[in-house]
Design a protein around this nucleic acid. Structure first.
Lengths: 201, 201
DNA sequence: GTCTATAGATCGATAGAC
DNA sequence: GTCTATCGATCTATAGAC
């Protein structure tokens, strides 16, 4: 109707709102991953994204909904994981699972939402629920289904404990020399432990 | 000089301030352990202790100093630990260490400051420093000193990762069935892993 | 020793102008 | 689509009365 100046159809009125939403999401991911849920403020996210705080609410609603949108990306790779690691010969599942987990942590793009979840899950129930849905319900239960011992789920959780604990000390608390160690050296030591939990005596 | 009424020397003037300080400390320990550093408020501690928030500041100063005083008790048993677990035959250190750690976690009195530290260490630098001083510097380094491999410290930290991760899933995130499992069953599975990290190939 | 009062700051969320 | 303005709540910390 209006705008007959010859510009392309459907072009935004004036400013670039094209990727504003994505900029907010990226800023939220960084803030939540660095500070955790409680310490992160909507205003801080807005400032990091270069917009007004009201705009954050306009796009996502409450702070909790911002958090959910920011860590949603972490669900995608985690949901694909079980098939990749659980299927295949049982005696290689330790290495496959360990290699997959550290692959996700070492990738900066996927590490941030994981950091956000871990930093937040210890004090925020929403984040804890995401953690349980991601780790326990999806990953562990399907791995446990491949074992035929009565305490299969406990075994899977103790294997996860080794992986989660290593990630905590390496990526969150940054304890040396673990934080700076070569990831292949870590995998070499951790994979047999995971394998032992799952298929050992 | 004054007070010639026959009362005992040095008796507090009127009210029972005898254990007020301790009540505040106990309340702080409970609040920090349940909510973590950021989510805990000085006012919440005061209310739980049945006093005014100004009194909390009067006794301890800033919120950070309240936190340090509240988790200080956790340092005492941890500092005694290395001698108990590191000394003795190397092939029993896995079980001794695992049994000692879960003993501390299973004791409600010592569990609370540990929960406070873990819940806070992921977002608060003061708590993270306490964690490093407690776990890494004191415990791990002295255990690593008993090993004679070049990567002794890395081995000790991966052993700690299994213990920390198990505590996270059991006591903080409360993932089932690990959270409700018998502690002896857990020790049976975890101790060999710790032993393997420290003295394995 | 304990409390009232309050300064000073930040936060989440909303209404509404442009 | 983006911002200004603002409400109401909450927080740390201090000064000072009793």
């Amino acid at each position: 109707m209006s705008d007959v100046t010859g510009r392309k159809r459907g072009r935004p009125p004036r400013t670039e709102s094209a990727d504003t939403r994505d900029r907010i999401l990226a800023a939220a991911r960084e803030e939540f991953s660095e500070r955790g849920y409680e310490k992160t403020s909507v205003r801080g996210i807005a400032k990091a994204a270069g917009v007004d705080s009201a705009l954050v609410h306009h796009y996502f609603g409450t702070k909790e909904q911002v958090f959910e949108a920011a860590v949603e990306i972490a669900a995608a790779p985690a949901l694909n994981a079980p098939d990749l690691v659980a299927d295949g010969p049982l005696d290689g599942v330790g290495e496959r699972l360990t290699r997959y987990i550290f692959g996700v942590w070492e990738n900066p793009a996927t590490r941030m939402p994981l950091l956000a979840i871990v930093r937040s899950a210890v004090t925020n129930e929403t984040a804890a629920a995401v953690f349980r849905r991601l780790v326990a319900a999806q990953l562990l239960r399907r791995i446990a289904a491949h074992l035929d011992t009565p305490d299969a789920e406990l075994r899977a959780e103790l294997a996860a404990a080794q992986l989660v604990g290593t990630a905590m000390l390496r990526y969150v608390i940054k304890v040396e020399p673990l934080a700076s160690a070569d990831v292949e050296q870590i995998i070499t030591r951790v994979a047999p432990v995971v394998q032992g939990h799952l298929s050992g005596p």
